[in-house]
């Protein structure tokens, strides 16, 4: 699978798809999207890259090893559930803060968003960790 068109297109598609996946993640709390679909899109982007350039290239292009992705995802998700302990509330209680950004308005930030980021990383890592070795066979 060494189509020139695919290669050229993929070179541009990879960053775009990764950006799109982040977009899905961020908007997921209010509109369709979220960590699961975002993580899958990110993984799919790299799989597409692999189809065009080969798996070895994917390993190079990946900013982090899939195992690191999984680990950090789980860590972030678990950590986000413990913040409430410091606020004297039971584990996993969500905390929200209003952050005012000049010229943008109020931003609603909370631990569930961090949790979703963990899901995103874990799902992307899991998918890649599964597909990459199978594709290398």
């Amino acid at each position: 699978m060494t189509s020139l068109i695919l290669r050229t297109a993929t070179r541009f598609l990879l960053p775009l798809l990764v950006l799109f996946s982040l977009f899905l993640l961020v908007r997921g709390h209010h509109e369709p999207g979220g960590g699961f679909s975002g993580g899958l899109v990110a993984a799919a982007a790299f799989v597409l890259y692999g189809l065009a350039f080969g798996i070895a290239e994917v390993r190079k292009a990946l900013p982090l090893d899939p195992r690191t992705l999984i680990g950090s995802g789980l860590l972030i998700a678990v950590t986000s559930t413990t913040f409430s302990l410091f606020a004297g509330q039971p584990l996993m209680t969500s905390l929200w803060w209003k952050v005012a950004i000049p010229g943008f308005g109020d931003l609603d930030l909370g631990t569930p968003l961090l949790f979703d980021l963990g899901v995103y990383l874990a799902v992307a890592g899991v998918t890649l960790l599964i597909i990459l070795p199978l594709a290398e066979e």
């Binding site: 699961f36 899958l40 799902v123 899991v126 998918t127 599964i130 597909i131 070795p133 199978l134 066979e137």
Partner: peptide
């Protein structure tokens, strides 16, 4: 269902790897 889909995918991947 959303969780079921993703879990189902993981199970499938594991079965495929096991089969392989």
């Amino acid at each position: 269902i959303l969780t079921a889909i993703v879990i189902g995918f993981a199970v499938l991947a594991f079965s495929l790897a096991l089969f392989h």
